[in-house]
């Protein structure tokens, strides 16, 4: 887990964002190119590589979703690939119906609009609920790290992605 190592952190899913920022600043200063101006080329290059890793690490770890995807990837999960089995059938039905409503609206049938607003509210509520759920799953993983507690996290992230894609489309149509 290079992203955690470069910041000197334990590979936990729940991170204190203030602490993360402090660590990032401190490590950035240590790796600043000015400090290596007179160093040997190999040392300077190594610091540069580490510095670029540090930036990627910070950008990824400060976002809980990107952080979770990183941990999943490092544990050999490829998010998305097992999609079909991870998405509950009720959600698929809902996604399908919503897409139908979107299509009707595109075709100029305004009667689909109220259905869309209702669906948008519903999906937004689902997202909010899943954020709370994710916190709980993060805590569980931190207590018992391993592939088992990562499975529900992957499933939840898949559902979220689905919902987010949809919401983006719905927002687009409703604002027209």
């Amino acid at each position: 887990m290079d992203y955690y190592r470069v910041l000197g952190l334990d590979p936990k899913l729940q991170l204190d964002l203030n602490e993360l920022q402090q660590l990032f600043y401190a490590r950035s200063r240590q790796l600043h190119p000015d400090r290596f101006a007179r160093a040997e080329a190999s040392v300077r290059d190594a610091a540069l590589i580490e510095s670029s890793l540090l930036n990627d690490a910070y950008r990824t770890l400060r976002d809980p979703l990107a952080r979770a995807e990183y941990i999943l990837k490092e544990n050999g999960f490829d998010i998305g690939l097992q999609g079909t089995k991870d998405v509950p059938p009720e959600l698929l039905e809902e996604v399908f119906d919503l897409n139908m409503a979107l299509e009707e609206l595109k075709a100029g049938d305004e009667s689909a609009r109220p259905q869309l607003s209702a669906a948008r509210d519903n999906f937004e509520a689902m997202l909010a609920k899943s954020s709370a759920e994710l916190d709980g799953l993060f805590a569980e993983y931190d207590q018992h790290p391993g592939p088992e507690p990562l499975k529900p996290i992957r499933a939840l992230l898949n559902r979220r992605r689905y919902i987010q894609n949809l919401l983006r489309d719905v927002h687009g149509y409703l604002s027209n």
Binding site: G80, L81, P89, L91, L92, V95, N158, R161, N165
Partner: peptide, 13 residues
């Protein structure tokens, strides 16, 4: 059969 691919948001019936 109703299936979906969350990575691209596809849904297929």
């Amino acid at each position: 059969g109703m299936v979906g691919a969350p990575e691209c948001g596809d849904v297929m019936k």
